[in-house]
């Protein structure tokens, strides 16, 4: 009945590297692409969404690890959804009340997070099977991986689509306006994915199979 099975947690460095490279949420697991593509039209937008997801991911992973032994396994998915919704709402309310300046910048992005597949999938795949501390580092690594992915995508799209980085004009024209449009978001992510595969090949590693879901077995 109880699906909670403990396996020895990997070391912290592995957990972080896994989130950044081997199982990067965007470039490896290809999760949460829709909001990621919609938002990463500039480095600043990418950074805001990345930070917001990072915080919610860490909090949600830890919460799932804390309650995994007391929830009925059959209702764990709705409970995870509720946990994410609680953290997102709390962040939204606390920022609005006590950090109005920050809220003005990130308020829009915080509300987007409820629909993020990557967060719930880490709760299900990792936090359900591990203790609080490894879950924290898993959330940390995955959140960081998402943040880096947003920065890379945002930088690529802002530079080519708008000729600027972080709002500073680098060239005085728009080299390739296409990449800033929604379709260009997918092109960009595809190109960076290819880069990841190329690096893996150079490192003598087999790139992940054609399932598009490298993390589903882990």
């Amino acid at each position: 009945m109880n699906i909670v099975t403990r396996t020895a947690p990997p070391p912290i460095s592995t957990l972080i590297m896994r989130g950044l490279f081997d199982e990067n949420p965007v470039f490896r697991l290809a999760l949460s692409l829709c909001p990621a593509v919609a938002v990463t039209t500039s480095v600043k937008n990418g950074l805001m969404l990345g930070v917001a997801v990072f915080v919610v991911q860490v909090l949600s992973s830890v919460s799932a690890a804390l309650i995994k032994n007391i929830i009925i396994p059959k209702i764990r998915i709705p409970v995870f959804t509720i946990i994410i919704a609680i953290w997102v709402s709390i962040m939204d309310m606390v920022l609005a009340a006590f950090f109005p300046a920050v809220y003005g910048e990130v308020g829009l992005y915080v509300k987007l997070i409820v629909a993020f597949a990557i967060i719930i999938s880490r709760m299900e795949l990792f936090s359900m099977k591990h203790d609080v501390v490894p879950s924290f580092w898993d959330g940390f690594g995955m959140g960081l991986g998402f943040l880096v992915a947003m920065l890379l995508t945002g930088a690529f799209r802002e530079l080519l689509g708008n000729g600027s980085i972080l709002g500073f004009q680098i060239v005085d024209f728009k080299p390739l306006l296409l990449v800033i449009l929604p379709a260009g978001g997918f092109f960009t992510i595809g190109l960076i994915m290819a880069l990841f595969n190329w690096i893996d090949l150079k490192r003598g590693k087999e790139p992940p199979g054609g399932t598009g879901c490298g993390g589903c077995h882990g």
Partner: peptide, 17 residues
């Protein structure tokens, strides 16, 4: 679970509003 969630969110709302 839902009752707990609403209690938590309600509390935060009253505190931050």
């Amino acid at each position: 679970v839902c009752l707990l969630a609403s209690a938590i969110l309600g509390g935060f709302y009253l505190w931050t509003e």
